[in-house]
Design a protein around this nucleic acid. Sequence first.
DNA 1: TGACTTCGGATAGTACAGGTATCCAATATA
DNA 2: TATATTGGATACCTGTACTATCCGAAGTCA
Lengths: 213, 213
Amino acid sequence: MRVSELVQRTGTPLATIKYYLREGLLPAGRSTAATQADYTEEHVRRVAVIRALSEVAGLPLAKIRQVLAVIDVPGDDLFAALGTAVGALPPYPREQGDDLPRARAAVERLGMRWDPDYPAAAQLEHALAAAEAAGLPPTGERLDAYGRAIGALAEYDIRAMPHGAGSAVEYAVLGTALYEPVLLALRRIAHQDAARRLLEGSAERPGERPPAG
Amino acid sequence: MRVSELVQRTGTPLATIKYYLREGLLPAGRSTAATQADYTEEHVRRVAVIRALSEVAGLPLAKIRQVLAVIDVPGDDLFAALGTAVGALPPYPREQGDDLPRARAAVERLGMRWDPDYPAAAQLEHALAAAEAAGLPPTGERLDAYGRAIGALAEYDIRAMPHGAGSAVEYAVLGTALYEPVLLALRRIAHQDAARRLLEGSAERPGERPPAG
DNA sequence: TGACTTCGGATAGTACAGGTATCCAATATA
DNA sequence: TATATTGGATACCTGTACTATCCGAAGTCA
């Protein structure tokens, strides 16, 4: 197909397509003449992935480039590829000491084995430190509740993972990135639902709207 | 305390403090003279909250301003305040039809009562549409697994919510925003842990690093 | 008292991300 | 042949979040 069709199929402006080509996010089409190139279904899908990672997962284009590179050429070490690819996902905590005291305490409490060098470890430390600084440190009880729920979820994700090396990397990266927003949106809706159920029958005054938080 | 101390206590540059004052995120100190003002512990905490919402939760300052305004003056309708405040949190899906077919199907499958006008509903629709466009539509099985886990989590959050109106809003907003990154980091660590457990004993070749996805 | 520092307040500038817009000459296509 | 489209290059724009500089008044220390 020609660019115009790619534009129409993906709903992405031509200028943006050209920008992605310039930035190396989108491979060039097969050149059929000096002013003509041929694009495929792969290009359509690639644009969809780029926009999903950008708009929904909030990745900066530089990171999307890294992620796509790993998906394209996973190499022979599946686990290294998974680590690289998922490590490229946001957020990106600035470097700090190798201490990670809060993260260490949390993960050990939950009985998980972990690798402190894995970027998620620094993310966890950063997030816990911020919650503490804002005056909302996690109670042990809350950590337990979160750990149980998240553990079940993660186990499902891993069990459902495909077996081929290339598809596993793609599944892990896109699944991690694209299902995070799903998770967060579900959480907010579940909050609303839980609040309604728990407060229904308690001291709700007539005319009041059900809680939304 | 004087500005210099606020700078030192929060680790935030003076120029940035001034910027927050200009932008109305931080209330001015009590003016003691034309070139002197007095800041309190409240200011220290407020800066910590701003930075946590900005760096960890990724909120743009404009949204932080809205969130802080609701925390400061929750008004008399707790539920409206909760809705407004949590609705100000990212991501911000662009407007679309009132249809939300994917979100509706998902939420109904999970047996949750929901309000399609709540921003999280549009977020869910957007996230599911993106996953679908990228070639990873959710299976019913996955939705069930996510719903069970998230439902348990949300129920804990609501049960642990404080009862006063002002503190409930602050808890809901900061808890929603600040614990999202905690959740996501835990999920990635749990993935790693689950992958290790499930693959240990299976066809793992020696010398291979444990999975990181 | 006087040098030096700090402060509030205002304004201007910077750095980066993520596009948009325009122009050109070479083709396609009708 | 007339018109539209394309690849390629370059310039430009918009928004966000700061960062830097300057000023004149006021506090602080010797």
